[in-house]
């Protein structure tokens, strides 16, 4: 068993297979996004529970399909189930996941209190990935997808996405 920071236990043999599956909209492993809730191997049956980030996330069905394909290709017999309880939270994104998000150009979720202040425009907190300035402001609470808000840097002018805190 591999135990993740978010306390999820994943079978050692299944870990590399699932780690290689990315969210189709963001190049981050579904493991690091905290979307894998359980992965056990019984005989050759790989029982995997995955959870959506947002209810309407159009990637959810695609991810279930990708997981099935990856497991089959690795020689397992997949049983993939989608669960919604307990509901997904940004707290489940691993440190590696946060780094991967930022490498892709999305500012990773900050803690809940700072998140609220940033979204309400009370404080300039979020750091522009282009120039490092925290002199940034929200443009729109909903960005290109439901999980993101749109910000811009007031120093270098760069627009960027922020992965909203969901707790």
């Amino acid at each position: 068993m591999v135990v993740l920071e978010n306390k999820v236990e994943i079978d050692k043999k299944l870990f590399p297979v699932l780690k290689a599956v990315n969210d189709p909209e963001i190049p981050v492993s579904i493991i690091d996004m905290g979307m894998v809730r359980e992965a056990v191997l019984e005989e050759n049956i790989a029982k995997v529970k995955i959870t959506p980030t947002y209810s309407g996330c159009p990637a959810t069905d695609m991810i279930a399909f990708d997981v099935k394909m990856a497991l089959e290709q690795a020689g397992f017999n997949p049983e993939v189930e989608s669960v919604i309880d307990p509901p997904w939270t940004t707290d489940w994104i691993t440190e590696e996941g946060k780094k991967a998000l930022e490498k892709f150009g999305i500012v990773a979720p900050v803690d809940a209190t700072s998140d609220k202040k940033a979204l309400m425009g009370e404080k300039h907190i979020l750091k522009c990935l282009n120039c490092g300035s925290t002199h940034t402001e929200m443009v729109s609470q909903f960005g290109s997808t439901a999980c993101k808000a749109q910000f811009r840097c007031l120093d270098c002018g760069e627009p960027f996405d922020y992965f909203k805190c969901l707790i």
Partner: peptide
């Protein structure tokens, strides 16, 4: 553009909830 995306995202959230 911003309100367009916001309203579309709200619709998407609701459709997702309804599916469940």
């Amino acid at each position: 553009l911003e309100t367009d995306m916001a309203l579309t995202n709200i619709a998407l959230d609701l459709f997702g909830q309804v599916r469940s």
